[in-house]
Simulated scan of single mutants.
Amino acid sequence: MAKLKFGNLTYISEKPYELNKGIRIEYETPIPVELHKFYSPSNYSFQAITESKFYCSHPYQFNDITDSNPLSFNFDNLSFEDYKPLFQNELNDEELKELYVKDKETKFSAFRNLHFSLITQKLGTICLTSDEMNNLMWGHYSSDSGFRIKFDTQKLLESINNINDLNCLIFPINYIEDKLHIDVNKLGFHLPLLVDISTKIKHWQYENEWRIVISKNDMNVPHSLITPHLIDYTGKDDRFIKYDPESILEIVFGMNFFNGTNVESIQSISNTENHITIKNKNLSDFLDFVSDNLQEKMVHAGLFIDDKESYFEGTAPIKRSIEKIEIKKIDKNIFSLIRTNPGVIRTNFN
C-alpha cells in the first residue's frame, strides 16, 4: 500500500486499483449534509435539471488552467520499461527506443500528455460547494440570473451510485499555495493523480468546494480547448450521469432570473402575483418540471435593507435574502409566479 498525507487529506493506493476502493482519499472533515450547485441561465443548465443529470467535466473544461493539469506529473526519471507500455502497440522496439531518447529531451512531454489524456478519459468531475449564499459564487457561476440547487448529499450520492452503477469518490478541495509538479518515480502513478484532482490554489478558497469524481471506461477528451491542431477524442461513453430528483431539497432562482433575455413580458396581476410569458422553449420545459416536481422547494433570491444594523450613523447594510414562491403553468409558455409569504424572508445562511 502507498500512502501520503498532505494537508487535511490522506491519499491511498492499494489493490484493488479502483476508484474509491483501493484508490481513495480519506479525511476527517464531515461530509456536509447539504451541498449546492450554481447554474448559469443556459439551455444546458435547464436540460440538466429537467433530465435529472450532471455533466461530469474533463479538466480541460475547468476555469483554472492550473487545476488538474498534465504538468502536475513529473516523469523526469521515467525508465524505458515504464515508458514502453504506452506506445508498444504503435511502434516496434527500435522506434520506441528512438522516441524514448527524443522524448526525454523534453522531459517526456509526449508521454505526459498522452498519459494525462488516457487517465482523464476515464474520470469526470462534478463541482459543488458547501456555501449556499456566497456573493462570489452567485456572481461567478450564475451572474445572479441563473439558479442554485440544494442537494441532500447522502441521497444524491446513493442515487448516483445506484442509478449509474458507480462507486463515486467525494472529497473536499485542499487549497494550497501553488499546484505541485509531482515525481511519479517516487510516488507511483495513483497518488499524484489523487493529489492533482483534489488541490487548488488558495485564490479559490472562497468556493468551499467539494468534488464528486466518477469513472467510466471511455469518455471524450476535448483536446481542441487547449490547442487547435489536436482533434477531440470521442469515447464510447458520454460524460452524463443521472441522479434521483428527490435528492433536491431546494431551488433558488437568482434575483435577475426572470429578465429580458428569456422573458417576453411580465404582467402584474396583484402585489403578490405576476404572469410571465417565456421566450425560450428549454426554459419553459424547465419551469414545467420545476412546477410539477419542486413546488414546495422553490424560493427567489433578493436583497433587503437591514435597518436593525448600522456601520455608522445614517447607514444600513444591504444583505442577500430568499423568499418562498410558487410557479404554476397557465398556458403553453405562460406561468404564474406567486409570492406565497410576502415580507417573510430568510437572511441567515451557512
Rank of each mutant, 00 (worst) to 15 (best):
P192Y: 10
T66E: 14
N63A: 14
S117W: 03
D178N: 15
G254D: 05
N348L: 11
Y11W: 05
E207H: 10
T120C: 08
G302S: 10
F304T: 15
E309L: 13
E26C: 07
H58I: 01
L4Q: 05
Y55N: 06
E94Y: 06
N262I: 01
N217M: 04
S291F: 09
P228E: 11
C127H: 13
D178A: 08
G7H: 06
N220G: 14
K319H: 13
I160G: 01
N134E: 11
N280Y: 04
K53T: 02
K179P: 00
S45N: 11
S145L: 00
I126N: 00
K5T: 15
K84S: 03
M137H: 08
A2N: 15
D285N: 12
P59R: 06
G343S: 12
V184R: 00
V221L: 04
G139V: 03
D292P: 00
P245E: 08
F6N: 09
Y83S: 02
S79A: 05
L78S: 10
E313A: 10
M1F: 01
L86C: 02
N8E: 15
I251K: 00
I149H: 04
P192S: 06
K236I: 06
I163P: 05
E81Y: 07
E273R: 06
F171G: 03
A48S: 15
N185C: 07
E158L: 10
F151E: 02
Q88Y: 12
A110H: 08
P32Q: 12
F46S: 01
T125N: 11
K281F: 01
R320Q: 12
F286Q: 02
E158R: 07
L128C: 03
L123H: 01
D82C: 04
K297R: 10
I330F: 04
L249E: 13
Y100R: 02
D238L: 08
L19W: 01
N162A: 07
K97F: 12
D244S: 10
S336H: 00
R346E: 14
S247E: 05
S321F: 09
